[in-house]
């Protein structure tokens, strides 16, 4: 393993210099790049990368990484935000993951994005540990933006239950995932269940999924120990059944992502915050699996609160 500083953000004179580290494994070929947290509350994403670094270190010592194949892992680009408890870049509140491909003469987060992209852009495969723009928990899955540039069937090698394809919106065109694809990297985002709360079991499962991918892609020897994957169901994000609130108030959820649900089943209730009367029973629109559950103690009207994968 070779640990390098790929970018240093100067926060002088009142903070110390803030590094972005890259951990390099294997040979010189640019085979797989993994990027972790780019937002200050992506602790789960950073944790997955940290555990991946630990696992790859052991695999390298066992000579299980193929000689030519090269792997780089960037666990976090959001140290500056994490240390002050902010989701976005603390000065101008910009989102690093909306700044790609970056610009080395541009504004602060454009320069940071440029340094990351310069490091990871020529790799054959790109994996981002990502979080969603609405705060919530998912069934662990792999996801890609439909750019028209790549074959999504490769995602089956992660051995996760679902591969979700999102049709790009204009705002998606500045994400790492989209720009990787534009620059000929086959790119996926791995959603490891949670974001701001560290879930070690889910983190281990995500590391296993990435190791499975590396084995199937011939980067790591098949002798490496890893849990079995499952067949992957490909689904368009638009095919998910969305459940929105009709009322506002305190939210009490009765199920969690991954639970099977039946059409008409009560997924949660909205309670009047002053008088505790039940204002709404939130019902499942179909039989299936609860795929996404919004993280909120209280919720407004017209909010997406659950998505259900019909099965």
């Amino acid at each position: 393993m070779n640990k390098k500083v790929i970018y240093t953000f100067s926060a002088l004179p009142y903070r110390q210099k803030i590094p972005v580290y890259g951990y390099y494994f294997g040979g010189k070929e640019k085979t797989v790049a993994v990027v972790g947290s780019m937002r200050g509350d992506e602790y789960q994403q950073m944790c997955v990368c940290a555990m991946l670094v630990k696992r790859l270190k052991a695999l390298e010592e066992q000579c299980f990484i193929k000689a030519d194949s090269g792997i780089v892992v960037i666990p976090s680009a959001s140290q500056f935000s994490m240390n002050v408890g902010r989701r976005f870049f603390p000065v101008d509140n910009t989102d690093i993951n909306r700044m790609f491909p970056g610009y080395n003469l541009g504004e602060t987060t454009q320069r940071l994005a440029d340094s990351i992209f310069s490091t990871v852009k020529d790799y054959q495969y790109g994996i981002q540990l990502a979080s969603y723009y609405l705060c919530g928990d998912f069934v662990p899955h792999v996801r890609a933006i439909e750019s028209g540039f790549q074959d999504h069937s490769v995602a089956d090698d992660f051995g996760l239950s679902y591969m979700v394809v999102r049709q790009p919106q204009p705002i998606d065109t500045t994400t790492l995932n989209y720009n990787w694809q534009v620059f000929n990297t086959t790119a996926f985002s791995v959603y490891s269940g949670s974001t701001s709360l560290v879930d070690m079991n889910q983190a281990n499962a995500s590391v296993d999924a990435i190791i499975r991918f590396l084995i199937k892609r011939g980067v790591i020897s098949e002798e490496a120990a890893v849990s079995d994957g499952v067949p992957t169901v490909h689904v368009g994000e638009g095919e998910m059944k969305k459940v929105q609130t009709q009322n506002a108030g305190l939210l009490h959820k009765m199920i969690k992502p991954g639970d099977r649900v039946n059409k008409g089943q009560v997924l949660g209730i909205i309670i009047d915050p002053y008088e505790a009367e039940v204002l709404e029973e939130i019902l499942s629109p179909c039989d299936g699996v609860l795929f996404f559950s919004r993280t909120a103690e209280a919720i407004a009207q017209h909010e997406l609160v659950f998505t259900v994968r019909e099965e």
Partner: peptide
């Protein structure tokens, strides 16, 4: 607050909007 409180995206990046995602 410049943005929409409690929401990730800049308001001037969510137009023309939709009725299926968020308030």
């Amino acid at each position: 607050e410049r943005g929409l409180p409690g929401f990730d995206l800049d308001m001037n990046r969510i137009f023309p909007g939709n009725t299926e995602s968020s308030a």
